[in-house]
């Protein structure tokens, strides 16, 4: 490893015409991407009253259950609400399209590819992906075409050989010191490292960072239930009835023995 003693001399023109332009172009593309994504974002679709009601119907039983063990409402009221909810879930009162009629075939599980609402969500993901992929491919092609094999910069600290493949991509020289960084590697360093800078310029909620999207595929979300994903509410409601029954067993009114608690608190009766 004595090659490091023989120092390379970099033309300052490389610094001015290659190093800075690559960095600058990448920053600007990131900022541009941020604004294009904002432009592409479609406004969330407005839901009808019935759809909102269907979506929020579950929260009713969840709110009732949340305090069941120390419920603020007396037993008759609790039981009335619980029974009402249970009956409504059973009958499907909260379903968007009204309760299912007798003799209807159970609706098939919704297919995310055929449902236009779900398709919209997926298209939005694809669009942002495209906005990320296309400019990055163009930049990479540009660097590969014009600056292939360029050495751009020398890091001010020594590194082990393991970093060679990371820092000298595109240059096939086994002997060169690892501190020298090639143009393609400089591109990758920028690609993954500019997020902090974007956060400074555009604020925390920016969509300029493209490396983040690399990990997220538009189809990854399709498996997990998410907002806008069609759910079979009928089944969900039926399952919720068991929970309601369960918390009815847990139910206890705070006011049940409140007088004893108060009297004990003020020392009127001994514990």
């Amino acid at each position: 490893m004595s090659t490091s003693a023989v120092s390379l001399y970099l033309d300052p023109q490389i610094r001015d015409w290659v190093l800075f332009p690559i960095t600058l172009v990448m920053i600007l593309v990131g900022i541009l991407r941020h604004y294009v994504v904002i432009l592409l974002q479609s406004t969330p679709k407005k839901l009808s009253r019935e759809a909102v009601r269907e979506q929020r119907a579950l929260t009713r039983s969840q709110i009732l259950q949340a305090t069941a063990a120390n419920s603020p409402i007396p037993p008759t009221y609790y039981k009335a609400i619980s029974k009402h909810l249970s009956a409504a879930y059973e009958a499907g009162t909260y379903l968007k399209d009204g309760p299912p009629k007798k003799g209807d075939a159970p609706p098939a599980a919704p297919n995310p590819l055929s449902d236009p609402a779900a398709m919209d969500g997926m298209m939005a993901g694809m669009k942002t992906q495209m906005v990320m992929m296309v400019p990055q491919m163009v930049i990479m092609g540009w660097i590969n075409f014009f600056f292939q094999g360029f050495v751009l910069i020398k890091l001010p600290f020594p590194l082990t050989l393991g970093f060679k493949s990371m820092l000298q991509r595109g240059i096939e020289t086994p002997d060169m010191d690892v501190r020298w960084v090639s143009s393609l590697s400089w591109y990758f360093l920028n690609f993954f490292g500019l997020n902090g800078l974007y956060r400074l310029i555009l604020g925390g909620e920016n969509s300029a960072d493209s490396s983040r999207d690399m990990t997220a595929s538009p189809f990854a979300a399709a498996g997990a239930p998410q907002q806008g994903q069609p759910q079979d509410y009928n089944k969900v409601f039926k399952a919720e009835r068991d929970n309601l029954e369960f918390s009815e067993g847990l139910y206890n009114w705070v006011g049940k023995d409140v007088e004893e608690r108060i009297l004990r608190k003020y020392g009127k009766i001994s514990t």
Binding site: P74, P75, T76, V258, E259, E260, I262, L263
Partner: peptide, 16 residues
Amino acid sequence: ASQTPAPKNINLIDEL
């Protein structure tokens, strides 16, 4: 109307 039982020790509560 809600079939709530009246508290025991009502005298003590009144006093308190």
